Amino acid sequence: MAVAWRRLSGAPGRAGLWTRIRGGKVGLWTKSLVNDYREACKELVVGTRDNPGKAAVYCMLLAGASACTYSNPSDKSFQVALLESANQLLVLSPWVRNGQADQHVQKLLTIKTQGRLRHQSLFLFSFMYADPHDPVTSIYDAQCEYLKPRWSDFPGRVLDFGFLGKWWMLGSKMKDWDVNDVEFAHLPAQLQTVTPRNLYSAENERLYDLKFQPVILQEEDTQEGVD
């Protein structure tokens, strides 16, 4: 230890290694960097004291950005959500499944099976998009540089948008995954949709009695049947 210290300090009358480093370019650059950080921290403290409202807004924005980055969904989370959605639809009869949900999930599964499903993280949020070809494809269309998709075509290839730990397009499609809209297409317009107002018991009773009322044919309907 003493030998190492003497080597760093140098012999009497001669500058040691530590002294040469402090006086060299690296030492001067490090000293300048430390001074810059010190001045920046000092200005930050003074600015926070003079403008507390502005500092609070900046802190909230920084905290929000940090929360979005931390909860940014990954490719694995989309794979899990897609498999869960497919399993939910699988337990239902094709006559009961929601047509839009089933079509959307089947499209995603097809793209995944073809190896064209891609994930792109932008720190605060993520995208799932479809590539025209699998990376291992060797056909001419996949290898030609002039046939590769342009950035202007990217919005049309986006499949889902991930933000705050959730994939929003898949969640929107699976909202009424167990309701087949085609099954209720023959009902009157007021019976095809359910609003919070319809959930009251009196309104439910009225709609229940409505389906037992006879269908009234107009004169033009009878004429069409005769023709």
Results as ranks from 00 to 15, higher is better:
Q79K: 07
C41M: 14
N98Q: 02
E183D: 06
L170M: 07
R116F: 05
N51W: 03
H104G: 00
Q114P: 05
S93W: 01
S85I: 00
W95T: 15
S93F: 01
G162H: 01
V34H: 07
F161E: 04
M174F: 00
Q106R: 09
L33H: 12
L164Y: 10
D102F: 04
T30C: 04
D131Y: 00
D221E: 15
N98G: 10
Q143I: 06
K211S: 05
P12R: 13
S121G: 06
A2L: 13
F154T: 01
A86R: 04
P94A: 06
L109F: 08
A65L: 07
R20Y: 03
L83V: 02
P188A: 05
I139K: 11
V80D: 04
Q103R: 15
D134R: 06
L28V: 09
Q213W: 04
A4S: 06
S126W: 00
K54I: 03
G23F: 07
Q218D: 11
T113F: 03
N198S: 15
K211V: 04
N87W: 07
I111P: 00
L62D: 05
N51H: 11
H119A: 03
A63V: 10
S66M: 13
L124I: 00
W177D: 03
P149V: 02
D153A: 01
M128K: 07
V80W: 08
Y70I: 14
D36K: 08
S138H: 05
G165W: 05
N198Q: 15
Y146Q: 09
Q120N: 03
L191S: 08
R14W: 14
S74V: 07
L170H: 08
D50I: 10
N204M: 13
Q106N: 13
A4E: 10
H104M: 00
E203Q: 15
Q103S: 12
L62C: 06
G162L: 10
W95H: 15
D134L: 01
S77F: 05
R116H: 01
K148R: 06
C41H: 14
S9D: 13
K148V: 00
D181V: 11
K211Y: 08
A4W: 05
G162I: 02
A81R: 10
H186E: 08
M60H: 12
L147V: 04
K166H: 15
D181S: 11
M1P: 14
S126Q: 01
L44C: 05
D153S: 11
Y58R: 14
A65C: 12
N198R: 06
W95C: 12
M1A: 06
D227Q: 10
K31Q: 15
Y129Q: 00
A2V: 12
R97I: 01
E219I: 14
T69N: 02
T30R: 08
A65R: 09
T30V: 09
I111K: 06
Q79C: 01
F163I: 11
E183V: 12
L17G: 13
Q88I: 03
L108M: 15
S32M: 14
L147N: 01
T193D: 00
L17E: 07
S152L: 08
G16Y: 10
E84I: 10
L124D: 05
W18A: 15
V136G: 02
E219T: 15
W167G: 00
S66W: 09
D36C: 10
G165K: 05
L109M: 07
E220S: 11
N98F: 04
V182K: 07
L187K: 02
T222D: 13
G23K: 12
N98M: 05
K54W: 03
V215C: 12
P196W: 14
E183M: 05
Q218A: 13
